[in-house]
Design a protein around this nucleic acid. Structure first.
Lengths: 242, 242
DNA sequence: AATATTGCAGACCGTATGGTCTGTTTGTAT
DNA sequence: ATACAAACAGACCATACGGTCTGCAATATT
């Protein structure tokens, strides 16, 4: 026997003490013309939230990355998060975009400065693993990718960005390295193989007894790659001075 | 203004029609001695649930694989599931064990019949990808592995089984193939690299434009492996007759 | 035939989660 | 000075999930 009396939709908000967290946001010495304080603060909060999301994704995985946990990690209010990212997928998609951007930056920088030397293949592999993959960011990214497989909404948000990333990433490698395979874009192919291997390795990592096991796998892979991938000899063609 | 009248903790179970689904379970012609009908039915239900779990993991991913969905997919009652698997982690862990067993079976069979020929490396790679990885089972397994990274309970349930699988899997390969690398167990190392690559490829798969792109990656990888991995020449040593 | 056990059926519950909504404060435009 | 908009702050809610519990029918045992 259940008897409910609800005043549905008539509950009025009670008194609440609102407090704005953080400093009162003094106007900085050089306030850029159209960069208002609103914009600036908004961007800062956004950044804090995204960094917290990366941490949560790494630590808890996609499904356990909740608004509540991000809120705690970022030390912002619930409203701040939902203001910037209306849904969970939007938050994660933006996180992914940030991660991709960070990964691409070094490549683009090298491209802008064409006289920098390409690393030896072995170093390239080892550095890429350490910087891009075996890190908070790399693990968070794998979580996002895996979530995409079964979350249609998230997948639709990210598909274009990711294929674009694949393309640019492959192009950057092809500019500096050359492969032994038949196709002209063999370096890009090898690079895609390397990335897949890395992502699988992240998943595998937790079950090896010692970190050395991972290093052995990686070293062996690098050894193989050294036979297939080469630093492109002639940096000529375009910009041939010096 | 809220007014609740609950008969808390005094709600007595009402009349319920219990219906046992499935056939009335006639005694089969050859009832094994200690294999009672109870055991048989129990195993059947268990199998149905596990298969449904595999399907859900593939289709929805780990976190969206709920008791409710498994229940629907298996067409069993909620009670049946919780009876066999008290927690979600237990269900998934058992699913993982089943998957590992299925993957190992062909290897063990070959081991039991030592005169079967080893496949060429290229075929080994292609077959393994198709059978073990690019399938409902393979995708479900990747979901489980990824979930393990951040789910401590699940991880503890599976760690031993997975390291054991790695060991046996590597040993099986080493028995049939030999690697070019310095170490004696180089074939096992290469095989571990292949598996990580495959898992990464599953994640990558969703973002390629055509299935052909995956095939190119795989073919290139197989081509590389053909230079590193060889069918072991002498099938002698043990069992040297014929 | 009587009793015990196994294998299941499904109601129930506390909790957490994604999302919405209203209110407030701070900065901006007029 | 005043009106307006942006950027939060946090209460609120429907829903669904994992897990527990009681009940019952089919087998098994004695």
């Amino acid at each position: 026997m259940v008897c409910l009396y609800f005043e549905k939709n008539r509950i009025v908000n009670r008194y609440v003490t609102y407090r704005r967290k953080g400093k009162p946001l003094q106007t900085p010495e050089t306030a850029k013309p159209r960069e208002t304080l609103h914009h600036q603060r908004s961007r800062e909060t956004r950044e804090v939230i995204l960094q917290a999301a990366i941490g949560c994704l790494d630590e808890y995985g996609y499904s356990e990355t909740t608004f509540a946990k991000v809120q705690t990690a970022a030390d912002v209010s619930r409203g701040a998060i939902t203001h910037h990212f209306p849904t969970k997928q939007a938050l994660v998609a933006e996180t992914a975009r940030l991660l991709l951007e960070n990964v691409m930056r070094p490549f683009e920088r090298r491209q802008a400065n064409p006289r920098t030397e390409a690393e030896p293949v072995h170093d390239l592999i080892m550095h890429s693993w350490k910087r891009m993959v075996a890190s908070r960011e790399g693990r968070a990214f794998v979580e996002i990718l895996v979530a995409c497989r079964t979350d249609r909404v998230l997948q639709d948000m990210l598909r274009d960005g990711l294929t674009e990333f694949d393309r640019r990433s492959g192009a950057s490698i092809t500019r500096l390295y050359d492969g032994h395979g038949p196709d002209a874009d063999d370096a890009a192919l090898l690079w895609a193989i390397f990335r897949s291997f890395c992502r699988g390795l992240i998943i595998h990592q937790q079950f090896v007894s010692s970190p050395d096991d991972i290093h052995r796998l990686l070293a062996r892979f690098a050894q193989i790659m050294e036979k297939e991938l080469f630093v492109r000899d002639p940096p000529a063609s375009e910009n041939p001075r010096t």
